[in-house]
Amino acid sequence: MINKGKLCSTASASVFLVFVFLILISVAASAAQVTKIGTGYDPAVYGNKVVWANGVVIHLYDMNNRTDTTFSSSGASSPDIYDNKLVWRDESSGTPRLAVYDIPTATKSYITQNVDQFSKPAIYGNRIVWSANDSVYLRNISTSTQTKIGNGSNPDIYNTKVVYYSYSEDPKVDITIRMYDIDTKEKVTVASYGDPNIPRIWGTKVIWSDAYNHQGYIVVYNTSTNKTIDVTHPLDTDPNGNEYGASTGTHIAIQNDKIVYNKAVDDYEGKPGVYVYNMTTGQSTLVYNYPKEVYTTPEVYNNTVVWGIDKNYVNGATDNGIYLYDLAA
């Protein structure tokens, strides 16, 4: 097994490159563009709908009508949404399972096999992926067929591609991002350098957090060009000799040409808060400024960004609100 090269702090940084990078950080949006739509955790967004969990209920918020519909589900967490279907982890029976809810028919079904207390489902079309006990599963809810597709965790799905974190599948490297093709059943290694984690996919773009140093930084890989670029800054040293970077990888998401992420450190790279990165322009925008050590969970769909407070880092949070920001406002 190869011990991969690891990223470490350099003695000095290129002042010019750092200056260019910082120019691309825009100022924070005004508070008038941000709306609090509820309280809870783990928001997700699709179209004009936002879903989140709040202990014993799942909330479904319609942005057009500004209505909030709730569904009882004890121990509900990690919801996701695609079109008119919701999925989340449910523990109301005392045993972890996945709940699948169809909005038009108001019917709920459950996935009970191969689910554990850490399972976080992701849905695209009629397919749901999740991990349990270091295995990745794919279920087609239209045919009720379920398959183990890999060894790993933190899967995400787009169309016929599934990406996930693995430390045991590729004999040449120890930590990888793997991509599985549902049609061909073939797997390839997308990333094997540093400490790649929490992969996300949309279209031909795969992003992940390289968490070898501190809170990590964001990398994007284009499957059509086989090119990889850094979205945010790895660990480095500013012109004054202060350490910065590797502070943007705790929660990441992608949709179309936008990447959203949390930053909880005030350093040379920027202020803490919720950011949107535009892949077309190469520009990061701070859309909401938080104090240091506040960790958020931003998600994005078209011009809508939603976020809550990360349950894994609640000590620095001032509230558990669910917030919505309209990029087009």
Rank of each mutant, 00 (worst) to 15 (best):
T112Q: 12
T67Q: 13
S247L: 05
E243G: 02
T160A: 08
I309W: 03
A53H: 08
A191I: 07
P196I: 03
L324K: 15
G55P: 10
D68W: 05
C8Q: 14
S131M: 06
K148D: 01
Y244V: 03
N222M: 05
D267K: 11
N151F: 07
G55L: 03
Y295R: 07
T145R: 13
D42Q: 10
V306Q: 02
A264E: 10
A106H: 02
V265W: 07
Y124A: 04
F118W: 12
F19Q: 13
Y180A: 06
A246R: 10
S73P: 05
L138I: 01
T281R: 02
V51D: 04
Y180R: 02
W307L: 00
N312V: 00
A264V: 06
Y313H: 15
S109W: 01
Q215R: 14
V190S: 06
T39I: 11
G75W: 15
T228F: 00
S209K: 05
W88S: 00
L86G: 10
V50W: 09
R97E: 14
P298A: 13
A53F: 09
N315I: 01
P43I: 00
A28F: 09
P234D: 03
N151M: 06
I309Q: 11
P196T: 00
I2P: 01
T143S: 15
S247K: 14
Y290K: 13
D80M: 02
K4Y: 05
R66Q: 14
T223S: 15
T143F: 07
R66A: 08
A99Y: 08
T204E: 15
S92C: 04
R200W: 01
V51M: 05
I81W: 09
I182S: 01
Y277A: 02
V50I: 14
G5T: 12
P196S: 01
T304D: 02
C8K: 15
D134K: 14
T237W: 08
T184K: 01
E299V: 05
S135R: 15
T39W: 00
T10E: 14
P291A: 13
V276Y: 04
V163N: 03
N65D: 12
D68H: 07
A29Y: 12
P291L: 11
N240F: 10
D156K: 10
G55N: 06
G282I: 09
I149L: 02
I252A: 04
S77N: 11
A122I: 03
D267M: 12
G125D: 04
S224G: 07
S209M: 04
Y325F: 15
R89K: 14
G270Q: 02
I37A: 05
W130P: 02
K4W: 02
Y268F: 15
Y288E: 01
Q33A: 06
G75H: 14
D195V: 07
T107V: 06
Y167L: 08
N226A: 14
A132P: 08
A29K: 02
V287S: 05
H251R: 08
S135F: 13
P239V: 09
Y221F: 15
L98T: 07
D156T: 06
P291T: 13
Y301G: 05
